[in-house]
Design a binder for these strands. Sequence first.
RNA 1: GCAGGGGUUCCCGAGUGGUCAAAGGGGGCGGACUCAAGAUCCGCUGUCAAGCGCUUCGCAGGUUCGAAUCCUGCCCCCUGCACCA
Length: 952
Amino acid sequence: MVDYLPEAIEARWQAAWNDAAVFESEVDSSRPKFYCLEMFPYPSGQMHMGHVRNYSIGDSMARFRRLAGFNVLYPMGYDSFGMPAENAARKMGGHPHDVTWSNIESIRSDLKRMGFSYDWRRELATSDSSYYRWNQWIFLKFHEMGLVERRTAPVNWCDDCDTVLANEQVKNNRCWRCAGEVRQKDMAQWFLKMTEYADELLDSLEGIEFPENVKAMQRNWIGRSHGVDIHFPIVDSDEVIQAFTTRPDTIFGVTFVTLAPEHPLCEDLVKGTEFEADYRELADECAKISEFDRINMLRDKKGVFLGRYATNPLTGESVPIYAGNFVVASYGTGAVMAVPGHDQRDHDFAKKYDIPIVQVLSEEQNKDPKVTGRAFEGLGWMVNSGRDGFDGLYGDEAKATVIGTLEAESMGSGTIQYRLKDWLLSRQRFWGTPIPFIHCESCGVVPVQDADLPVELPLDVVFTEGESGNPLASHDGFVNTSCPSCGGAAKRETDTMDTFYDSSWYFLRFADALNNTAPFDKINADYWMEDGVDLYIGGIEHAVMHLLYARFFTKALRDAGLNDVSEPFSRLVCQGMVNAPTPFCVDCNVEYHVDLEGSPCPTCGNALGSRSAKMSKSLGNTVSPEIMIEKYGADTVRLFILFGANPEAGMDWSDSAIESNHRQMRAIHASLLQGIENQSDAGEMDEWLLARARRAQSDWANNMADVSLRDGVMISHFEMVADWQWAQRRGGVSANAGREYLMNWIPMLYPATPHLAEETWRMLDNKEMLAETVLNFDRPVGESDSIIIGREEYLKRVVDRARSVRELAERHIEGELSAVTIQTAHVWKVELSSQAIEMHDGDFDFKEGGNKFLQSQQCFQDESTKGDVMQFWRALVVGQKKRRGRIHTWGNQERALVSSRFDEVAFISENADFIASALGIGTVEVYRAGEGEDVAGKARTSLPLEPGIAWR
RNA sequence: GCAGGGGUUCCCGAGUGGUCAAAGGGGGCGGACUCAAGAUCCGCUGUCAAGCGCUUCGCAGGUUCGAAUCCUGCCCCCUGCACCA
């Protein structure tokens, strides 16, 4: 037999697929399409296990869908703009372009070595001007649509990255990329008005198949809250404070109003008064620390009275105005109506500054509110309202009535607030898409003409270590230009685009990647993107950033008329982490670098244990895909990845598990060769094996269609081998049946381990490669299969049960066991059973008519067995204690077997030799209960499919 | 605090009313083959008095003829958001 040699097999088929261009796909409206996409990689160097996992999942789905007849679009590209290449260029004194391209080449060869079935013609790199020119083109389109805005605003600045960041890219006040601290800075920046799509982005989440947590994160991020802007006129002034609240039902409990210290009214109110000094102190303090710290680090709420009063618009009461450090200027209106009776934060503040607390909602209808010493924040019934017509109202009705009154009196209006902000997309960095605008002293900020696109990044830029700032700004050849409008001397914008911009539409570009007259053609986009990308696979880390931007882009481009689709991804699968063991100190709860394995904990000195942690360079617990491929072959790595865990679960790297998967590949290979070389004419197990194959294939196809790859692979790569081996043990299969089995099995091996599948498919003399073969997986599984499979399971069960009673028998019997005696159930039991099954299918009421039926039966007439019959009938239709009657517990397979009057005696006799050898016993006797000696009194307890088994 | 997801046998993990002492894998144990090792194959892997037995699916109750599965309360873990008015 030939050894399993993956390198040779894999190289051969990768070349064959490539030569035949089988993975290239075109628009074909006669076939159903399947767009399979993975989040494309940032080319940081070599492929890592996270990539291997992501793309192994995608590739097996793409291959599965092709096999099932879909027209599959499965492209790959590189998200190749971004800071690491720029930083590397600085360090090594090169150009980011060169760094990027050498990385792309390295990762491409890794991808090819894994055998992923991409349509390589569509390969793209976002840092290529043939791609980013369309970034610019789209930007100008958005500008025409009024979605682009340049404005001065406080923005998030990352010192380490030397650039601004969008809100989505700041996590806990730290940069998402480098984890450096972010500070606020006022700058003129470019924004995309994503907020115009806030409602659609939120509402259409309902209809797409995203994991719940991703949807929750997006909902949370968009943060829509319905409320009302209430006007609080300032006493002795024309100014009005607009306060946003979601709880207008508490308006009668307002005892003060709080402004953010940055609120412009603060200045006006305190200027020149005795309160100015205190206010200034607070404002300065707040200005010094970031908004984040103010909100997060401040446990104590601080405020200062501003010396003035505002009027409650519904009661005319005057309430003091404070500036408070806990009020966020950028949310709502930067002013809060404070209701200490029903808001804990206001309650704390009121206590501290001795402001009255008024309760205006009651927890119980028609009762006074309980005084609890804290704020009641739930919904309640209005009480103590300062005006008639409000007391007794509850919840939404209370809110609506207040809003209605305010609107009628022009003292407020219902509004919706969002947490989502416009997307700040300019970056003060070199390695990104230049923003296609020109600054002209006389015409202002002017868009570049379409005809002048692309605005290309210059290649003659020198990067030097330690230099900060954007080298574009000092590149005269780039900066100096003429105004498209007046022709005068002008300067180019030197900010570039956030790289998330690049990935916000790349899935549309893939639909028509070679187009050089438009970003993509509508016909192509509408075909491939109908109902969105059918399967999108990637990491959870982009839940709010990339996935939200891409959804926004798709809608905005739709409104620009470029495509019909509104949601880019119809089904999202976030693959879990790949973890690996790393040293861990239980006492300190700290993970350490693998170099410390075997050493004591550097902190507490105790012995280090081990636990699974995300593979990372910093822990050193990474495993190199290249080395694994070299050692075991790509197919084994793919099998390990897919079998290790279902796509969404985390998985642990294990050396012994990949070892064991490699053994499994060899076992599969050996079984396949055995099948191919099999010359046998006789095949005792033909029927069974083929029935098993039909069932397995149907289950497998269902699992695969559902992206339950682990379950699918379990069937194709484990159960199919086990069945094959069982068939060999049980008498073997004929050459023809074996071949048919392989014809079913090999395609099932193909999605996960395509190389071995293709190799053995060819050995079966198939002319077409599996890569170009279409199969029908919807074949019905017949009832006769149930009986065939059920019989074999019956045999296994008999052997199992015989084994389990053997030990007992050995204790009871002196000397060696010589025989096993199997007594199958009495004929009348089988008859009653099949009748009961039939009756049960016809919804017979056994409680009602069971006894009457039984009395009419022949077997019931014999006084000597009457008791047994009665007892059996109960076990059959009613059951006892915990176990329900057999007609309920039997599955379809058992029922079919019993109904078919399966002859247990004949079947066991035929297989007596096998049973004897499986049990290691000389003699197997079998007869129907009552037709031979009742060994160990097992005749009575025998049931259909559960014969009495005794040893002697 | 809010939102989302979890807690299953030695470990990972499937299981959403009865076919469940609970798939599959890992690990462990035993056996076959072998001079030996590896590889491969087979079996066992809650418990006992071996059964219509007993105990077990985070904890405590409840519904049901019957609960890992449904309901209520509680505890714990992970993820995201957060003085958001």
